[in-house]
Amino acid sequence: MNRRHFLQTAGAGSLALASGLTSCAPRYRNIAGHPMHRVPKLKLSLDRIVKETVGLRPFRASGPRIAKEALGNKTIVHNYGHGGSGWSLSWGTGNLARELVMTTGEKKVAVLGSGTVGLATARLLQEKGCEVTIYTKDLPPNVTSNLATGTWSPASRVCDPKVATPEFQAVWEAATRFSFRRFQFMLGLDDIAAWVDEYNVFPAKPINPSNPALGGEVYHLDGLVPKSQEINRRDHSFGADFVTWRSNMMFNIPSYLHHQMSTFIMLGGKLQVHEIKRLEDIDALPERCVVNCMGLGAKEIFNDAELTPVSGQLACLIPQSEVTYKLITKGANIIARKDGIYLGGNGLVGNWDTTPKREYTQEWVDIIQQVMQEMRS
């Protein structure tokens, strides 16, 4: 075989091989040019559940309390009662609380609580040159913030729109925009925040998919996360007739809380495990300005009759590397994080019980299994 014949033969073989590889590659668009959503199935069974938890969301019908009041010779700045929106609003309401602290002229500040709201508030105060000490009953992971789903949902059970004032909506919008900007700075940093695909999968179009009574979004801001798009049945893997998709932000809670705590300490913050049980305990603190980020702990201490728990159970599946999406369907939802795939779907107003109930987990497994079984190859 001469050199020219060899090169011609090898070239033809390479083209044939490339053609074969291309034909075997997954297709991401159908023949009409529409994007295809090929979603990997979830491996789902009760024996893959490795953890069940119940978290209590601190809900106030009128919305989070962001206010300043005097307590003897101290100033108390309140920042609590975020409902299901604490993670998303933490930076924004922390900024509003910081603005109130700045009016006092104090540079030594106490923050009560080491959940996501307390940590964000403490970090923001450090950025203004404050010496901050966090006083907390427990440390992560033994805080309510560790038991959240961890997705961008700034208006989930944030208030009762029948009670909240128009002025509160303006406060919420300012907090939401500030928080969103801060989370953008954290993208790409140790996977503590990331964009994921979010699917709504229903047999038919829901009458009110964002019903606040079911934990849906009370308010909405255009221009932050992309709008949901309905997907034609031929363009997705699900067996349901109504499917929507959008990109949304997700927080990997263990790494996020670790990052926040580590950064706070690195910048000179002080931390004391010290339970606050009554107003006298606050009065005994050396700081003259105190930011209350205690969540439900504020109910009894500050006699807040409006504050009530909304319990939410989660069941954690073993992580599955190819499953990286969030899915919402009637009666259940899943969100895939680095530390596990979480199933949930309930919110019990006024319930203080933090004991997981296996029947809820079984119901969610059954619902999601049905969705997976109806998926097309």
Rank of each mutant, 00 (worst) to 15 (best):
A194E: 13
W195T: 07
V196Q: 05
V196A: 07
D197I: 03
Y199G: 07
N200C: 11
N200E: 11
V201E: 01
V201P: 02
P203M: 02
P203R: 08
P209H: 10
S210M: 15
N211Q: 08
N211S: 12
P212T: 05
P212I: 08
P212E: 08
A213F: 07
L214P: 00
L214W: 06
G215L: 04
V218C: 03
V218W: 00
V218D: 00
Y219F: 15
H220P: 06
H220Q: 13
D222C: 06
L224W: 02
V225N: 01
V225M: 14
Q229L: 13
E230M: 10
E230H: 11
R233S: 15
D235F: 04
H236R: 12
S237C: 14
G239H: 10
G239E: 12
D241K: 15
V243C: 04
T244F: 02
W245H: 14
R246G: 03
S247F: 06
M249Q: 02
M249N: 01
M250E: 03
N252P: 00
N252I: 05
I253R: 00
I253K: 00
I253L: 06
P254G: 10
Y256Q: 08
Y256A: 10
H258R: 11
H258N: 08
H259C: 06
Q260V: 04
F264E: 01
I265N: 01
L267R: 15
G269N: 00
